[in-house]
Simulated assay, not measured.
Amino acid sequence: MGDRPDQRETEIAAIRAGIAAGARVIDTAEMYGSGRAEDLVGEALAPIDRQQIYLISKVLPENASRQRMAVSLDASLRRLRTDYLDLYLYHWRGNVPLAETVAELQRLQQTGKIRSWGVSNFDIDDLKELWQLPGGDQAVANEDLYHLGSRGLDYAVLPWQREHQLPLIAYSPIAQGDAWGHHLTTNETVKAIAAQHHVSIYQVLLAWVIHQPQVLAIPQTSSVAHMTQNVAAADLTLSPAELTQLDQAFPAPTTKQPLDIL
């Protein structure tokens, strides 16, 4: 979002519609559109009470050092038109030592420019390494790709995060439709459950992701109609029988899987 000037007003309207419908978390990053997404979010939030929004952004690996992170953060804050982030995520691992990144995140938290920090695209070994570092257990979230058609996290990552009370932020929770051969929107089980509840297929996919404890879904849309449907998915409760049917159609892995990343 933010890459097409002709879509700017539509995208701003979608963000504001989501907030009007009850959404309170907005997830963005300095990488998205090389800052243009943050700028769009900043404009969309301008007339809205900042205290009502939980704002997340992310720092690129090459900027996750003691020398560069503060500069990146200040640039993100300027684009977002705010003086603090509720959550600042290390977008994915790069060449900067993890201990240095964690130390700088903690330092920035002490300045008040970020209220909390976390990580993104961390696999089980990354999380275990993080937890062994001084202050590493102060991370408040891990953001990974997770949806009904990509359940690799179910084998090790999600159980570990639950044990350590570390919430998951699930990105791409509707798998961008049928991208990468997941066939979620054409699956007969998904379609039947959607029809039973008189909701869209995408609402079923979102409801499946967030039925689990300590899992937040962050679907992206530039459409007002889709935005309000996404928020309404929080009101959809899948029955135990329906969850079993979805597990049978898209079984959890029985061995460790490579971490899916977009």
Rank of each mutant, 00 (worst) to 15 (best):
T28S: 00
T28G: 02
M31K: 02
Y32V: 03
Y32M: 07
S34R: 05
G35W: 03
A37V: 04
D39W: 04
L40I: 06
L40Y: 02
V41D: 08
V41F: 03
P47T: 06
P47L: 10
I48L: 11
D49R: 13
R50F: 06
Q51N: 15
Q51D: 15
Q52F: 00
L55W: 02
I56K: 05
I56R: 02
I56T: 15
S57C: 07
S57T: 15
K58P: 10
V59F: 00
L60D: 00
L60E: 13
P61V: 03
A64G: 06
A64P: 06
R66T: 15
Q67D: 14
R68C: 07
A70S: 13
S72F: 03
S72L: 02
L73M: 11
D74K: 14
D74C: 01
D74L: 07
D74S: 14
R78P: 00
L80P: 12
R81P: 01
D83C: 05
L85N: 08
D86K: 04
D86I: 06
Y88W: 09
Y88R: 03
Y90L: 15
H91N: 08
H91D: 01
W92G: 07
W92S: 01
G94S: 08
N95Y: 07
N95M: 11
A99D: 12
E100Q: 08
T101E: 04
T101I: 10
V102C: 09
L105H: 14
Q106W: 09
R107E: 03
R107Q: 12
R107K: 13
L108M: 14
L108S: 11
Q109G: 12
Q109W: 10
Q110Y: 00
Q110F: 01
T111K: 13
G112D: 10
